[in-house]
């Protein structure tokens, strides 16, 4: 106790220069990281600042970085040129349907792979895993032809059906199911529970963190998806937010950055807001996707 007190007073007695040196050796990282963080944030800051400028200011080299007067008029202007409400609704419907469908398919398949024995199990599991290697970017062409034959082009289901099965999600959930101690399911079976009852009452409550992690990744991926919705839609009634934003850029052809950046702020902010509120959940989900 006495020693500790002595040490504290000894630290206080150090000359200023070595106290600075000590402080610097502890916090030098901040001097490197803070500029880097600002660099990383600058595109987002630029989006928001530009959305509050006037058209003249954007092209005026002497105008400075900050808008002279906060000009909120770009927001109503953006909302009046495109049906952002419809885009938003479509985005919610598409992303939500994909999520629900995926949660059902991966839960059922993961249970079979984790807890049941059947012929061809290994081959089937490899076929599920291999899907991860064949994303839509590599097979979009034939999928487009298939959906055309089904008559689904320019409908909401066209944006949903290619993503209903998820090899990646099945893999994640199977790993989680295998962590559940088998005593728990044995006890439930003695109580007269069948496989589906055990899945519902024992397994699903225990793997909730994995379900949430997968859900977050799925929502972020499909909410932001651009290529596939772009190819399979051709009218405003089914377009999603990213497609609407892309169209706005095309029609403005770079001339009206203020309106475009107001649109970008509107499209980017729902997900960023949810991210800021549930930061820890998001970070954990993405962090542990890499750890097997």
């Amino acid at each position: 106790m006495d020693n500790a007190v002595n040490m504290v007073s000894a630290t206080r007695a150090l000359p200023l220069s070595s106290r600075v040196a000590r402080w610097f050796s502890k916090s030098w990282k901040h001097f490197i990281l803070t500029p880097l963080v600002l660099l990383w944030l600058s595109p987002m800051i630029w989006i928001v600042l530009t959305s509050l400028k006037t058209k003249v200011e954007v092209f005026d080299p002497d105008a400075g970085i900050l808008p002279a007067v906060l000009n909120f008029g770009n927001y109503p202007a953006t909302l009046s040129v495109a049906p952002f409400g419809t885009y938003l609704l479509n985005s919610v419907l598409v992303t939500g349907s994909i999520l629900i469908a995926q949660l059902v398919t991966i839960t059922l398949a993961a249970y079979a792979f984790a807890r049941l024995e059947f012929p061809l199990k290994r081959l089937l599991f490899s076929l599920f895993l291999l899907q991860v290697m064949f994303p839509i970017y590599a097979i979009f062409l034939t999928n487009f032809v298939t959906l055309r034959e089904f008559g689904l082009i320019n409908t909401l289901p066209a944006m949903i059906v290619p993503f209903v099965a998820s090899g990646y999600g099945t893999f994640m959930l199977r790993q989680a199911f295998r962590q559940v101690p088998s005593e728990l399911s044995d006890a439930a079976r003695l109580d007269g529970c069948g496989h589906l009852g055990i899945l519902w009452h024992v397994y699903l409550p225990l793997v909730q963190p994995t379900l949430i992690a997968f859900g977050i990744i799925s929502v972020v991926t499909h909410w932001n998806d651009y290529m596939w919705p772009l190819l399979v839609t051709n009218s405003d009634s089914v377009r999603t937010l990213p497609i609407g934003l892309g169209l706005l850029a095309k029609s403005d052809s770079g001339a009206d950055w203020t309106r475009l950046m107001a649109g970008t702020t509107l499209v980017v902010s729902p997900l960023l807001l949810v991210f800021v509120i549930f930061q820890r959940r998001f970070i954990d989900s993405f962090m542990h996707t890499g750890v097997k």
Partner: peptide
């Protein structure tokens, strides 16, 4: 945690929005 989120947030931005902003950032004149 602030640093972590600041480096991570671009992942949350739709590719179309990111692409568009960078067109602006890279604009030769302004």
């Amino acid at each position: 945690s602030i640093y972590r989120s600041a480096f991570f947030y671009p992942v949350m931005i739709p590719s179309v929005a990111a692409g568009m902003v960078w067109v602006f950032l890279y604009a030769p004149g302004y």
